[in-house]
Simulated assay, not measured.
Amino acid sequence: MVGLALLALAAAGGIAVGAQPLPLGGVLRALYDDTAPAASVVREVRVPRTALALAAGAALGLSGAVLQSLTRNPLADPGILGVNTGAACAVVAATVLLGTDSQAAVVWWALTGAAVAVVVTYLLGRRGPGRGGPEDLVLAGVAVTAALGAVVSGLGALDADAYGALRIWSVGTLAGRELSHLWHLLPFLAAGAVLAFALAPALNALALGDESGRALGIAPGRVRLLGTLATVLLCGAATAAIGPVGFVGLVAPHCARLLVGPDQRWLMPYAALTGAGLLLVSDLAGRVVARPAEIQAGIVTAFIGAPVLVWLICRERTGRRA
């Protein structure tokens, strides 16, 4: 309840605060009066932006929780493992090479790119000396992200005009988003969320190991396949709307784990709640710090998440030495 209250407060701040200062009374009036002076700013800019931040942040936090459980890797994150970049690369390629501009088509391209990236990262990580250990998967994700980032840059050189429209999006931003983006994403986000929550008991069993999981009546291969599908749906749809925002899927599950422990039945909803709040607050901070300009949400989450990643890596190494 406290978390929901704080999230509601952050959502109210997302609607009330922006690059253009507005009196609180004017904001409240704009919510119910179409003729209010601030109606266009509040209804067409801030409300869609806030709603999309809540949906995309929850999706990224939930996908991070599923991915960390699937890989048994506390460093797993859709951004670090190249899933976000894969989705972004597919969207840029479709836009520059095929001229795709339909929001529905963009979502499907993002899902395809995310699926390919997660498979490639997992296969490369399994070839390392630790056979899928935390550092191997992170290094594989860094390599995939770098390679796909180079592809995105190369595509930008082919068609500067088309890439120019995607340049800010490729950093990860909520600026200029409309409610239509959210309606296109909701079916994929809902399907991914339902699938993830349905897998929670199986992921708890899988955490004990494949053999113990089989003894408890689950099929590890099927659980991993369905969990990967849930991650692709959640992360791919979110990336299609706001671009590749990193570190939300890394930080949110760890914050949730500190509150409720490792039980996926509790961890997943808290990770979704934390992810929504983190992205919303990051977007709000980016609007306030550089006013009247703004800092993209993806840059703010990187400032927050990079120190957390370093701390987690140091903790993993210390634990192994002990």
Rank of each mutant, 00 (worst) to 15 (best):
V248R: 02
V248T: 08
V248A: 07
V248H: 02
G249I: 10
G249C: 13
G249M: 13
L250E: 07
L250Y: 09
L250G: 05
L250T: 07
L250H: 07
L250P: 11
V251C: 02
V251W: 00
V251Y: 01
V251E: 00
V251L: 13
V251I: 14
A252L: 11
A252N: 08
A252D: 04
A252R: 04
P253M: 15
P253L: 14
P253C: 14
P253W: 14
P253D: 12
H254F: 11
H254N: 10
H254W: 12
H254I: 12
H254V: 11
C255E: 06
C255W: 09
C255D: 03
C255N: 06
A256D: 04
A256S: 09
A256R: 02
A256K: 04
A256E: 04
R257W: 14
R257G: 09
R257I: 13
R257P: 10
L258C: 10
L258G: 13
L258W: 14
L258A: 15
L258T: 10
L259G: 09
L259K: 11
L259Y: 11
L259E: 09
L259P: 08
L259F: 14
V260K: 13
G261T: 08
G261A: 07
G261F: 05
G261E: 06
G261L: 10
G261Y: 06
P262E: 04
P262C: 02
P262N: 04
D263P: 06
D263W: 02
Q264T: 07
R265C: 05
R265T: 10
R265E: 03
R265M: 05
R265N: 03
R265P: 03
R265W: 05
W266D: 12
W266V: 09
W266P: 04
W266A: 15
L267N: 08
L267C: 09
L267D: 07
L267V: 09
L267E: 05
L267Q: 09
L267I: 09
M268S: 06
M268G: 05
M268R: 11
M268C: 08
M268P: 06
P269E: 03
P269A: 01
P269M: 00
Y270F: 13
A271D: 00
A271Y: 02
A271L: 04
A272C: 05
A272L: 06
A272F: 03
L273C: 06
L273Q: 05
L273G: 03
T274L: 15
T274W: 15
T274S: 15
G275P: 13
G275S: 14
G275R: 12
G275D: 13
A276Q: 07
A276M: 13
A276G: 15
G277A: 10
G277L: 06
G277F: 04
L278Q: 11
L278W: 12
L278I: 15
L278P: 09
L279V: 10
L279I: 10
L279S: 07
L279D: 04
L279Q: 08
L279T: 05
L279F: 07
L280G: 07
L280E: 05
L280A: 11
L280N: 03
V281H: 00
V281W: 00
S282C: 13
S282L: 12
S282R: 12
D283G: 08
D283Q: 09
L284A: 02
L284Q: 00
L284F: 00
L284M: 06
A285M: 07
A285D: 00
A285W: 01
G286N: 00
G286P: 01
G286E: 01
G286M: 02
G286T: 00
V288S: 09
V288K: 02
V288E: 02
V288W: 06
